[in-house]
Design a protein around this nucleic acid. Structure first.
Lengths: 218, 218
DNA sequence: TGCTGTGAAACCGTTCACAGCT
DNA sequence: AGCTGTGAACGGTTTCACAGCA
């Protein structure tokens, strides 16, 4: 029990817990930047808008990070948490679909931050192939997906094509060997053995919001 | 109990239930298009990848829609469900931020389907103001937000600006009178009285996916 | 008979309350 | 004394199992 081997248990993390930990890592970055050394679970809860016990549970589930009577060492927790979550290194992302959405994503800060870098875009449109996005991400032919994925060492693929082509694009990515797929098309894709799929269904987000709108005045 | 007044209870719907019902509506559209008249909860569960009892519970929670021994009438269920969820009419959406992401969203099918129509984009960049997106959505100055929202009857606002301007953009939208905000910036905005906020944090989505990746081979 | 609508049971995630270190 | 780590209580959602109706 006193061993230093934490045996990084990323499994058994609920989606919600993963969200919280990911946001926690952001908060820790902010705290480190302003020179905060130590912080209690209560302090973190305040910044994240949650419950202190939950934060302790989330962290305790991954190992023992805190110091009783003191709290958590910001720099230490950030480093260890980043390592366990696998967010301490840069992963290469490839995007299938060099339309407006695909290019917007390729050039955005979201996809080119501390943990991610877009390696290439793919399309079947000959007029786009060979060109580059505004920030210089090369656009290659979709047929080159497989070799590009291994060449770039891409671990994550993004599906940003029209719904009717989404299933095919996702299959190509899975076969090309990416380990995760972020699907922006409002279509169910997969499942594929060995590849995690996460859907970011913008239509669904809009609809969900619409349903939950405060009732119209009157 | 036999009354026809269903008293459309949109409240008390969990986020998960709202997702399922929204997807259910899509599935019903598909079934109607291929001429299916009647479908059982088991049939729907199969298409949605869930449990039949859950679908019955979701629906029963909103009223009595099925016919015992038969199933659900596709056209009828679609119409009634659409009405209860408020997805049977077109809502106008405005987008703050006419950058690549904002324009991509403005022109996308996701935001211009059966239930939504983008009315205008807003930006502070004088070179963009007065122009139009590729599909012709006008770009107006952010100062014109308030009057545009009432003029267009916009109910939903989208925040597609850099993180540092997100809070301000959201506040402007809330003050302009939209009833819901879809926030694409990785920043907490609001809350605002009378305006529902939903975050679509793309960075968080990527990070969540990365954490849940199947472990690297080796 | 067949399928819905629904009470009861099982399950999971969150919150509480406190024992145990420092 | 202070704060973490954690068993126990709680609340909500999902699943089961079946009564009730066409």
């Amino acid at each position: 029990m006193t061993s230093t081997a934490v045996r990084s248990r990323r499994d058994g993390l609920s989606e919600a817990a993963t969200h919280r930990l990911s946001l926690l890592l952001r908060v820790l970055g902010g705290l480190e930047a302003v020179g905060v050394d130590t912080i209690s679970s209560a302090g973190l809860a305040e910044r994240l808008g949650g419950n202190a016990a939950q934060i302790r549970k989330d962290l305790a589930h991954l190992g023992e990070f805190g110091v009783r009577g003191v709290g958590y060492r910001v720099a230490d927790l950030k480093a260890r948490l980043g390592a366990i979550l696998g967010l301490d290194r840069v992963r290469v992302v490839v995007i299938v679909g060099a339309g407006h959405l695909g290019q917007a994503l390729a050039d955005s800060k979201n996809f080119n931050g501390d943990s991610f870098r877009v390696g290439a875009l793919f399309d079947v449109d000959g007029r786009k192939v060979g060109g580059r996005s505004r920030t210089g991400i090369p656009i290659r032919h979709a047929e080159a997906l497989r070799e590009s994925v291994s060449e770039l060492g891409a671990e994550i693929g993004v599906v940003a094509v029209p719904p009717e082509n989404a299933a095919g694009a996702a299959l190509s990515l899975a076969q090309a060997g990416v380990r995760g797929i972020l699907n922006f098309a409002p279509t169910v894709v997969g499942p594929f053995a060995g590849t995690t799929v996460k859907n970011v269904d913008l239509t669904l987000s809009l609809e969900t919001l619409a349903v939950q709108l405060a009732p119209a005045a009157g």
